[in-house]
């Protein structure tokens, strides 16, 4: 892969306490030439906050951007996801399927009718949470 190939990465930023006054997104765009797509944010002063976004750019610029974010004492949480699907709680009914706009929740095999969740496709619109009868989908914030 050449160094100027653009890649997209989904990041979840965790603000232990939102004291930063810096316009983070502005700097990611202007200083590191990153394309930003914000899925969901909860940033409230003096409380912990979350920001889930896609960044698109070169590997090098994404890394620089990530370092910039970390320099502001904001954590890039790679372990946790903003939205999680619990395969044990899921009763495999499929009532979520018509409400998922991206196909992150899907039934790839119509013979077995099993539900599959692909976190990479999820834009965290939270539609599934509202319609799941079994509480199988959870939002971190």
């Amino acid at each position: 892969m050449s160094s100027d190939t653009k890649v997209t990465r989904k990041l979840m930023l965790y603000f232990p306490e939102c004291e930063t006054e810096k316009p983070i997104v502005y700097h990611l765009v202007k200083d590191y030439d990153l394309v930003i797509n914000i899925f969901r944010a909860r940033v409230t002063p003096e409380e912990e906050g979350y920001l889930v976004l896609d960044v698109t750019g070169t590997e090098e610029n994404i890394e620089k951007g990530e370092n910039f974010i970390r320099s502001l004492d904001i954590k890039i949480d790679t372990a946790r996801k903003g939205l999680t699907w619990d395969s044990e709680s899921c009763a495999q009914c499929g009532s979520c399927i018509p409400h998922c706009p991206t196909g992150a929740l899907s039934i790839p095999d119509r013979k077995t009718m099993e539900i599959v969740f692909n976190t990479d496709e999820c834009i965290e619109c939270l539609s599934c949470i509202k319609v799941c009868p079994f509480g199988a989908v959870h939002s971190l914030f």
């Binding site: 009763a91 495999q92 009914c93 499929g94 009532s95 979520c96 399927i97 018509p98 409400h99 077995t112 009718m113 099993e114 539900i115 319609v131 009868p133």
Partner: peptide, 13 residues
């Protein structure tokens, strides 16, 4: 029209 099920065919199987 998109169709969603309340009954689980996977569990029935």
């Amino acid at each position: 029209v998109e169709a969603g099920s309340l009954s689980s065919y996977a569990k029935a199987r």
